[in-house]
Simulated scan of single mutants.
Amino acid sequence: MDQPYVTLKTKNGIGTIEFFHPNKNAMPTLVLDLLVETIQKADLDQNIRVIVLQSGGDRTFCAGASFNELVAIEDAKTGEKFFSGFANVINAMRSCSKLIIGRVQGKAVGGGVGLAAATDYCLASKYASIKLSELSIGIGPFVIEPAVSRKMGKPTMAQMTINAEAFYSAEFAETHGLYAEVFETNESLDKGVLALVEKLSTYNPEALTEMKRVIWEGTEHWEDLLQERAKISGALVLSEFTKNTLKRFK
């Protein structure tokens, strides 16, 4: 696998969305936009009752923003547009009428933590440690913060953000509400995900839709909030500090 992709496969009422990028499943604009389109497509598909969100490969779940694309940003409008990609994905997940079950098989960094937090229920392997590294490169997890704080609490979000270079274990993520369950192997993770979604696919779809609405109650303002946060990140990525830091990672 050497080309980025986003796919949707449907079987027995289960829609599996998989994204991939050869650079540790980083998220350039192309992948972010495709992910939004695919989530919306799955939402409209009457054959799908529950959605699984996963990434390709056996290692990193998602490395967050594409450093190469961040380095190339030269103006605030372009920066805002890039970070709006993450905002659009979170809002697509939030407004989707179907439950989205996360499968996190490996490390999640920055935006990857945001994706996990925006699922309705998330299962992970013991290798799925997490990190909010944004502050260390001169920006911050502004766009994903509402989703992370909503799942893990603001004190935990602040702890991870301030200790920006530390990975926190999957067990930590489970204790603080990001993961519902942690499995020893990817094989057992897959069995756990399958057992859950097969069960959910037999439930009353109207009840599932109403439950989804209740789960996300009070987040209707996120359309505007996340866009405002994208502006903050889009401006900060132009700072000399951030530019110099990103070049070292490139």
Rank of each mutant, 00 (worst) to 15 (best):
residue 193 V to H: 08
residue 144 I to K: 01
residue 33 D to E: 00
residue 87 A to Q: 00
residue 29 T to V: 01
residue 146 P to S: 07
residue 51 I to C: 08
residue 32 L to S: 08
residue 198 E to W: 08
residue 143 V to Q: 02
residue 192 G to S: 08
residue 141 P to M: 02
residue 70 L to M: 15
residue 106 G to I: 08
residue 223 E to R: 14
residue 5 Y to E: 12
residue 72 A to T: 13
residue 13 G to Y: 05
residue 30 L to F: 13
residue 170 A to Y: 09
residue 10 T to P: 05
residue 176 H to W: 00
residue 126 K to P: 03
residue 55 S to N: 08
residue 198 E to H: 09
residue 66 S to H: 04
residue 200 L to F: 08
residue 165 E to N: 13
residue 63 A to T: 02
residue 154 K to F: 15
residue 80 E to M: 11
residue 243 K to M: 04
residue 208 L to C: 03
residue 97 S to N: 06
residue 103 R to P: 06
residue 166 A to F: 10
residue 242 T to A: 13
residue 174 E to A: 10
residue 55 S to F: 01
residue 149 S to L: 06
residue 207 A to C: 03
residue 58 D to H: 01
residue 137 I to M: 14
residue 26 A to C: 14
residue 62 C to D: 10
residue 247 K to A: 11
residue 246 L to G: 03
residue 77 K to E: 15
residue 144 I to L: 01
residue 67 F to G: 02
residue 31 V to C: 11
residue 111 G to N: 01
residue 232 I to S: 05
residue 249 F to T: 00
residue 74 E to K: 15
residue 192 G to T: 01
residue 26 A to P: 09
residue 76 A to S: 12
residue 105 Q to M: 08
residue 219 T to D: 10
residue 126 K to Q: 08
residue 181 E to A: 06
residue 172 F to G: 05
residue 179 Y to P: 10
residue 90 I to H: 03
residue 169 S to F: 02
